[in-house]
Design a protein around this nucleic acid. Structure first.
Lengths: 170, 170
DNA sequence: TCCATATTGTCAGTATGCTGTCAATCTCAA
DNA sequence: TTGAGATTGACAGCATACTGACAATATGGA
């Protein structure tokens, strides 16, 4: 039974690794979102962006990326697609000719209203298999962990950044 | 306070949604993995594939996709890259001319040995911010949830599939 | 004012992930 | 044995994600 080779990794070790479990849950979460929301032509990412733009009308792309913890590069394409669907508009500003401010269109606002119940159903389904008490525990620990690990990701969440554009001319 | 408009979503609702938290933790987990393992030229996905091939020498791509819960399409590219790095080899078989069996090369086995400590360090860092007891709780709930939601993802985990190829000629 | 520096949106390149399709091949029942 | 149906690897197309670079523009100090 003993061997001269280094201890080899087993699949069980992989299955028990937090990184593997997070990847798997992300996979599952997206699948459930897509299944519940397929009628609305919005991905989870596009949905989050839409909510942020709805909450912060006139935000610019860089600020938006901080508010939803998205890479700036990735966000460019997301914005492009949301604009193609006519859910948002991009308006240049005279104050700073580099930035383009983002606004929800009527269609975008309507889409948001319509999709909400399905999003909530998807979110509920993710935790459904757990007992209610366990759901609360998991959610609390996860929230805590994401917050404490915020700086570890390339694009940390900066919810406050959303307010910056208000102070510019106000 | 009452309004004729539908209740609008807030960012706080997004931040508290399990789907958002899972996406965020996945982001963080990958960032930590890459940071710890950047010297080894292996992504988390490539690492998992390598472990599975190491554990199941002579597995084919379809079986492999079931063992690590990966889309078959995606896996093709992953295998391609692992082959380009000469960490694995693909060998056609006479029994079934459609399949190509996967084997670790010496370089692949060495890479796996070398990267292991860094992988473990990355995995540990993900949960580091939590109290030890909370880490155990989170891990247990997460394992449970992933298992119970297994069928929800497009590519459910089928760990047993790995053994199928053994029965063929044995 | 002018210039070093920073910021903004964009782009190219790489790597997951998913849907859907296809040709080659295998299997099994009629 | 043969032909319908399943399986396999491959591919095209779309949508995240990240790295690194770039031109246009802004900003603040010398």
């Amino acid at each position: 039974m003993p061997s001269s080779k280094p201890t080899s990794v087993t699949m069980d070790a992989v299955y028990a690794a937090p990184g593997y479990l997070f990847r798997r849950m992300q996979q599952i979460a997206v699948a459930l979102f897509v299944e519940e929301c397929k009628a609305f032509d919005l991905t989870p990412v596009q949905y989050a962006a839409l909510v942020a733009i709805s909450t912060h009308p006139g935000i610019d792309a860089t600020r938006l990326s901080a508010v939803i913890a998205f890479d700036r590069s990735t966000l460019g394409n997301v914005i492009e697609r949301l604009e193609a669907k006519e859910f948002i508009t991009r308006k240049p500003t005279l104050e700073d000719r580099r930035v383009k401010l983002l606004y929800l269109t009527k269609a975008g606002a309507a889409a948001l209203d319509n999709i909400m119940p399905s999003v909530e159903k998807a979110q509920a389904r993710m935790l459904q298999p757990l007992k209610p008490a366990d759901r609360k525990t998991l959610l609390a620990l996860l929230t805590q962990l994401v917050d404490l690990n915020n700086e570890a990701s390339r694009v940390p969440l900066r919810a406050e950044d959303a307010l910056e554009h208000l102070g510019k001319s106000g």
